[in-house]
Design a protein around this nucleic acid. Sequence first.
DNA 1: CTATTTTAATTGCATTTGCAACAAAATCGA
DNA 2: TCGATTTTGTTGCAAATGCAATTAAAATAG
Lengths: 157, 157
Amino acid sequence: MPDADLTKFNLRDFMPYIMARVGSLMAQSFTPHLERENISLAMWRVMMAVHFNGPLSLGEIARSTGVNVSTLSRLIGRMEKRALVSRDRSRRDSRAVHITLLPTGEEMFQVLWPEAARLEDIVTNGFSEAEVTRLKSALQDVEDILARLTEDRPDQS
Amino acid sequence: MPDADLTKFNLRDFMPYIMARVGSLMAQSFTPHLERENISLAMWRVMMAVHFNGPLSLGEIARSTGVNVSTLSRLIGRMEKRALVSRDRSRRDSRAVHITLLPTGEEMFQVLWPEAARLEDIVTNGFSEAEVTRLKSALQDVEDILARLTEDRPDQS
DNA sequence: CTATTTTAATTGCATTTGCAACAAAATCGA
DNA sequence: TCGATTTTGTTGCAAATGCAATTAAAATAG
C-alpha cells in the first residue's frame, strides 16, 4: 500500500475496510432471519460452528468465531437456558466443556441454514464458479496468513 | 451453496464465515497499535473515514463504517472530548452535523496509518499485483450487491 | 402556506461486551 | 513426587452497544 498520496486514496481499496464493510453488510442482510428466531448473530455463529464441527470446547469456538471466551461463556449460558445447546464437562479434562447442539438448536439451525445458504448464493451469484473458487481460496490464504501472524498473541479478539 | 450434504461441508468455504473470521483476525492484529494510542477500533474507523472522505455527517459515517448511528453519536462524543474530532452543526441543514478531524486526530492518524498500511501489505503479500486487483474488485462487487440488497432496509446495523 | 411526513441526531434504558481477577484442573520440571 | 506454571472456563465490574422514544429541522403534499 502506498502511504504517500493519501489524498486521492480511496478507502474502498483498503482491505481491512473492505472486509469490515462486507462483513457488516452480510450481517445486516441476515438480521431479519435471526430476529424471526430471536437469536443474535453471535449465537448463530456458535450454532454453525457446533453443527459442522461436532462438540467443541469454549476455546475452540472462540478461535473459530473470534468471539471472546468470557462473552461465549455467558452467551452459551443463555443458549443453554433456551435448550439450544448443552454444556457438559469433559471427562478427559474436567476443566474443559463440550458444547453440543440440542434438538431444539438443531431444528433452529435447519430453519436458518437455507437462508444463510441463500445469502451465500446471492453473494457469489455475480461470479463464475471458477471465480468463486479463486475468491474463496484467496481469502482463505489471507485468513491463514493472519492466523499465523496472530497465533502467538495473548488472547483472541 | 449445496444445502444437501451438510455433514462434509466445511465452514471455511462459507463466505459469511470467512468474512467474519478474516475481519476478526485483522482487528486482532491491529489491536496492539490501537492500544498504544488508547483508541478503539470503531474510533479508528471513524478517523479513517473522516480523514479520507472529508467532513462527514453521522449518517454518512454510519453507512461507511457499519456502526450504528446512536453508538456513533456517543463514540464521537468521546472523541470530541479528546480533541480528536470536531462536531459542528451544518449550516445547510441544521439537523445534520459535520465531523472533522482535528490536528490531534490527524496527528494520531498519521502515526497509525503506516501500521494499517503495513497490515494491508502483509495481507496482500501472498498475491501478485494482478491477483490483488482481482480480489479487491471481486470484493467490491460483493459489497455493491449487498449494499443494493440492503439499502431499503429499515436501519443500518 | 400550512399540515403531514421524512430525515438527522441525541438520549434513556436494558443488554451485551471485554478485561481482569479468580478457581480448578492439567502439565511441566527437577 | 511435589511445587510452579499453564490452560480452561467463570464472574464482578465498568464500559460500550443497540433499540425505541424523543426532539428538531427539512421536505413534501394538498
